[in-house]
Design a binder for these strands. Structure first.
Lengths: 214, 214
DNA sequence: TACATTTGACAACAAGCCATGTCAAAATTT
DNA sequence: AAATTTTGACATGGCTTGTTGTCAAATGTA
């Protein structure tokens, strides 16, 4: 029944204990981005991750309770990066409705083109892992759909006549551009960025300008 | 250097060797549909499959060279079932353009509702497995997109003004309804079937009736 | 310099899986 | 009935993984 030894925390290499810990956390996330995107989540082992991060297995469990927790955090990190890129792009002043949509789509596809590892994780590696990952995917897609919905309201194009399930429509629009992106990735980015943007824009404008016949 | 023994093939239980072989093949596919949809592909082991199929491990390797081959065949079987359901539905005579689209969408969503295991495999379990599975997914999505394209031509609504990447547009439409379906599944089919059909139809008619401004 | 903590390399262990092999019982043919 | 094929239950080997533990070297503190 001795006292638990006081957990004194020392600074190392000029960094505090917390800073070192956070750095290891980021190293593991970076390694996960590399390995998951190139080898697939299934082949992403703790040993591989730690080797790529230059760390020891013990530090993996310091940061994450298991592989799945790491994938979840990686997914949220990457979706946040994509969303930020889009938000930053459309926040330049003086954009009319169409230019806003175009700019947002441009940022979306451009980010996926310039960061293929991000694209791979977001578009492919999240599926079929677990219920928890399904929930993260659902949440991320809902957030993107809500973003579109808010934009549509701001831009004044959110008037569907019939009693329409607007959330479902926005989800469909997100699904459309996401599927275009998947196709683009699987095609090894064969089409031009402009072509993708124009196709996405066509769908968006078609829906926003649609007036039901009956 | 004796002759290889002549592979005489015997009839058993009133079934020929080929018939028994084919039956085992189907048993394994049915078991795979069960287990992959309920436990996920990662947790689908050869032992589980054989136990569920009431067969021995040896018969697994008689039909499939490995787990991945089974998943591939399962995926193609299920996508074919979905496509057939849609084709059958829209082939009833006397449908105008809108009713054809509506009927096809209805068959699409209805099949996914009535066969949740099919939905789970097609919509979720195919991703992040391997390059070969990615290729199968790509191929299936292209086929669905082509089906839409042919329909659009037949129905005379395939006139986009600008030099548009029509294949990309069709892919986007497929992605839209697929994403709606994913959302539906993850929501445990909360919305009504009609609501899904109407939302899908809205996207299709919006695009088919769209006339670019400039 | 003496001491405590942090780190890294790696061992250890149980568990699970794939793929193949063994062998006797069941079913069929001759 | 005797021989042969087919089947089912199960064992085996080899490998990989997750997770925890060991211990000395490196780095800091006093």
């Amino acid at each position: 029944m001795t006292d638990t030894p006081a957990p004194t925390r020392r600074s190392y290499r000029g960094q505090s204990s917390d800073a070192r810990r956070a750095e290891r956390h980021q190293l593991l996330l970076a390694a996960a981005l590399d390995i998951v995107s190139s080898q697939g989540y299934n082949n992403t082992t703790v040993r591989n991750l730690c080797a790529a991060a230059g760390l020891t297995e013990r530090y993996f469990y310091e940061s994450f309770s298991n592989r799945e927790a790491l994938l979840g955090e990686l997914y949220q990190q990457q979706t946040a990066a994509l969303r930020d890129a889009m938000l930053t792009a459309i926040q330049q002043p003086g954009l009319d409705t169409e230019r806003t949509m175009r700019t947002g789509l441009q940022a979306f596809f451009e980010t996926l083109q310039q960061q293929p590892a991000l694209a791979r994780v977001i578009l492919f590696e999240i599926f079929g892992v677990s219920k928890a990952m399904d929930a993260l995917y659902y949440q991320a897609m809902e957030e993107f759909a809500e973003l579109i919905g808010e934009l549509a309201q701001t831009l004044g194009i959110a008037d569907f006549a019939k009693p329409t399930n607007t959330a479902m429509i926005y989800a469909g629009l997100v699904g459309a551009v996401v599927q275009m992106a998947r196709r683009w990735v699987l095609n090894e980015y064969r089409e031009s960025l402009d072509s993708l943007v124009e196709s996405g824009l066509l769908l968006f404008t078609a829906v926003s300008q649609h007036r039901p016949a009956d």
